[in-house]
Amino acid sequence: MSETKEPLFSKKNKKLISDPLNLNNPVTIQVLGICSALAVTVQMDNAIVMSIAVLFVLVMGNLIVSLMRNLIPSKIKIIVQLVIVAALVIIVDQVLKAFVYDVSKSLSVFVGLIITNCIIMGRLEAFALGNKPWASILDGVGNGLGYGLILVVVAFFKELFGSGKLLGFEIFGNSVEQTGLYAIGYEDNGLMLLPPSSLILVALYIWIQKKRTPSLIDDH
């Protein structure tokens, strides 16, 4: 253990948080954890709760696996990781059921599916197994935020154009009473509420992101 003391937020550590937000985003660049990213984005509040849940599981899972990294036999590491993640997800599920029951109902099976969210297994496998606890926590925070960013952006557009609301507040007026924009003939785009539109929104996000940073373009 001949480590030189490095500050808690050294340049390298800051990179751990900032990279997953853009250059190495878990959803759009590494293409992980898409299932839930697409399915829970009809409303902003679902997306936010889901991001927090994933962030929590990711940070705690990274921390626990990183602390245990020298104890886990490599033959059974997948099962050990699955059990750790499943235990964390059970905690999240029980907490959601206790405090935000409506959201937990509308997230339905997707809370359970955090267990098989590839971002979590991917980060545990690729990062936490080979790094110190503090770096692993930062990596978890970074990737959790990167995941949450996509979720919130997609949910923003889906909720705004699909039902004219944001977090339940009516932005464009009331569509039933024909007030606000609806009075002059604006209509909600029902397509935005259907599952396929989130795929296309993510594709547009990838398009814009890769256009701005051409180094990300892959040629095949």
């Binding site: 795929l199 990838i206 814009i208």
Partner: peptide, 10 residues
Amino acid sequence: APLRGVGMAF
């Protein structure tokens, strides 16, 4: 070009 690969698959 920016859509090649993953983007197009989406």
